[in-house]
Design a protein around this nucleic acid. Structure first.
Length: 377
RNA sequence: GUGGGUAUGGCUUAGUUGGUUAAAGCGUCGGAUUGUGGUCCCGAAGAUCGUGGGUUCGACUCCCACUACCCACC
């Protein structure tokens, strides 16, 4: 249940009530694809990083260790010792981004595993069954994420199929939630809006899926290579057609600036690999902009990554030390930087919520939207 | 002391029968990264080829001397 607390322009401040607790929105979900945040971060660390929701991936967990294993181990929450909300991505994106051989048919997708080449079939029902086994708080619909740029005719055909798949997802989820052996019988389901960069396809699709009364609505298929202005334009076009009493999730986005701009247009939820991936590559986010920790200027720099930051890394270690760890190839470097970046993203969301609470989000946006996209001087 | 071997960017090496701007990896420096195939990708700087002579139209490549290091033998 989404409760709208306050609104400034199109930006929404709300609460999302789930069987695993209330989430303060807008919020960022920390990506732990294989039931772990890359860089050596455990669920215990996440509590110190202001993480509200962890995201895991259906495709990856199905391939390894197998959703049956996680089901037998009592579900994802027990498996990775995390009692707060978990969202599982449906696997649709992976089928289209990394499976080598794939054949899309009406019933679903045939593809070969990236781990061992084994033939796998995944359709709407299979994705729901796997996610039910994983017992996440929120399951995502099985969709097709078309590549950018897309041809209109293909995008139209694809998005219509995605709608049909969504109807099957919903029916299967209702069936699974009614089974006595299901771990999480209150598993929620989000639909995913597609339609590439075509306004009419996007709007028509959102109108169609809004009728299904799902637990939330995602905008997918963005941040796949198109310019940020195109992404913002799609949000401007499609969000007026998303239900106001349901959370809106912009999938896979993005930079701090993208997130501020998304909130500005009415998005409530985000996820992105950027804070963790960039951190492992020594790029960190600060309130003065982005910087690269391996840069020479940090060799003798005794200051923390960000002087305003209270994260476990900034409270304890210098830029000089972390730079040395990166240069030496120590895995601790990635861990410390990932902790900082996740804390930064979660703090960014907290600041956005505070700004909305205090009716000053417009000022916040004007100040930080350009600043956070820059390199730190 | 004698004989043999090796000297090429910071390091380890490639350089074909002598032929134009001397190649690669690592390291250094900078950049990239958007529903994650853990150490990945892109770019840049950096070498008067140990020193000095000689042969040649032309030498990192051939010859001589010297220097340094390595090996073997007295």
């Amino acid at each position: 249940m989404y409760k709208l607390l306050k609104q400034e322009g199109l930006a929404r401040r709300g609460e999302f009530h789930t069987p695993h607790g209330v989430i303060q929105a807008p919020f960022f979900m920390n990506v732990g694809t294989s039931a772990a945040i890359k860089g050596g971060i455990s669920s215990l660390d996440l509590k110190d990083l202001k993480c509200q929701v962890e995201l895991c991936n259906t495709y990856h967990l199905h391939v390894r260790p197998g959703d049956d294993v996680i089901y037998k181990m009592g579900g994802l929450h027990k498996f990775m010792n995390w009692d707060k909300p978990i969202l599982t991505d449906s696997g649709g994106f992976q089928v289209f981004s990394l499976a080598k051989l794939r054949k899309i048919k009406e019933e679903g997708v045939y593809f070969s595993s990236h781990v061992d080449g084994k033939k796998i079939f995944m359709g709407p029902e299979e994705s729901m069954q796997i996610q039910s086994h994983l017992a996440s708080t929120i399951a995502m619909a099985f969709d097709e994420c078309v590549e950018n740029p897309a041809k209109y005719d293909y995008a139209k055909e694809s998005v219509e199929r995605t709608t049909r798949w969504l109807i099957r997802c919903k029916a299967e989820m209702e069936r699974l939630n009614s089974l006595p052996e299901t771990i999480n019988k209150k598993q929620m389901l989000f639909g995913i809006n597609q339609g590439a960069t075509f306004d009419d396809l996007r709007i028509k699709h959102m109108q169609d899926i809004a009728k299904l009364d799902l637990d939330g609505y995602a905008v997918g298929g963005l941040a796949v290579g198109e310019p940020a202005e195109v992404m913002y334009h799609i949000l401007d076009a499609v969000l007026p057609y998303a239900p106001v009493d349901k959370p809106r999730y912009l999938m896979g986005v993005g930079t701090p600036t993208n997130i501020i701009e998304g909130v500005y247009r009415g998005i409530d939820m985000f996820d992105c690999v950027m804070p963790s991936r960039n951190a492992r590559h020594a790029t960190v986010f600060t309130w003065q902009g982005i910087t690269h920790l391996t840069n020479n200027c940090y060799t003798l720099d005794d200051k923390p990554i960000d002087e305003e930051c209270d994260c476990p890394t900034c409270r304890n270690f210098s830029r000089s030390y972390i730079r040395h760890l990166f240069k030496s190839g120590e895995t601790l470097a990635g861990r410390l930087a990932v902790q900082h970046n996740l804390y930064f993203y979660n703090t960014l969301m907290e600041k956005i919520r505070d700004a909305l609470d205090n009716d000053c989000f417009e000022d916040f946006r004007n100040h930080y939207s350009p600043l956070l996209a820059q390199k730190r001087k």
